[in-house]
């Protein structure tokens, strides 16, 4: 475990905590895409199939359980919680995310490290995570105004995979037979999707202004 990877995991954890804080503190999920949250729940459920078969470390197991539980809790809040669900922007959250699921699964069948049940689902989760933020970014463009916590949530969510890229570069040079091409390329695509958000997030931070995305 290197510092980049640990920082990435902590940043990812912070993003989840910020989102839970937003929903809990404001009892509202306005500005949050339920479709993106459903895609993340699917990403974790398909990526951590090895939870019961491969024990890596306590840290690894605990973090996997946290990500699975928190993503399911957020989807539950947005779908079922009587107060929170009322603030869901149903008519703005219209991205057809089933295409993302289908495309990721087809790609996983074609491009994977090994054609096995767990490996195909692992590759599927990697490809799906790379594009899972799209419904959220589209919703953000449409709703225009972004509350602070939502802005911070998306920032940390984008930053975590950028730190993972540094982790892969580090491991590439430090470990002899390290090759995670699937995760690395998908991670680059994933981080690139945040590029314009990062720009507007930086501008709002520099000008101490509210985060505004051009409509």
């Amino acid at each position: 475990m290197n510092i980049f990877r640990f920082a990435g995991d902590m940043t990812h954890l912070i993003s989840v905590l910020v989102l839970l804080l937003k929903i809990y503190a404001t009892k509202s999920c306005s500005g949050i895409s339920l479709k993106t949250q459903e895609l993340y729940a699917l990403v974790f459920l398909t990526r951590y199939l090895d939870l019961l078969t491969d024990f890596i470390s306590i840290y690894n197991t605990v973090m996997k359980l946290i990500f699975i539980a928190s993503s399911l809790a957020i989807v539950w809040c947005m779908r079922v919680h009587p107060i929170v669900r009322r603030s869901y922007d149903k008519d703005l959250d219209t991205f057809r995310h089933y295409f993302l699921v289908a495309a990721s699964f087809i790609l996983a069948l074609l491009v994977n490290e090994k054609f096995g049940f767990q490996e195909v689902f692992w590759a599927f989760s990697i490809y799906l995570e790379a594009v899972a933020i799209l419904p959220q970014l589209v919703l953000l463009q449409r709703s225009g105004n972004v509350d602070n916590l939502t802005g911070h949530y998306i920032f940390f969510l984008g930053a975590y995979r950028a730190l993972y890229i540094l982790n892969w570069i580090y491991r590439y040079f430090m470990e002899t037979h390290f090759s995670r091409w699937i995760a690395c390329i998908a991670g680059l695509v994933q981080t690139a999707l945040y590029a314009d958000f990062f720009y507007y997030y930086y501008i709002s931070w520099k000008n101490k202004a509210k985060l505004q995305l051009p409509a």
Partner: peptide, 10 residues
């Protein structure tokens, strides 16, 4: 060996 093809990252 076995450890290599385990996905040790989250």
């Amino acid at each position: 060996d076995k450890d290599d093809d385990k996905h040790d990252e989250l």
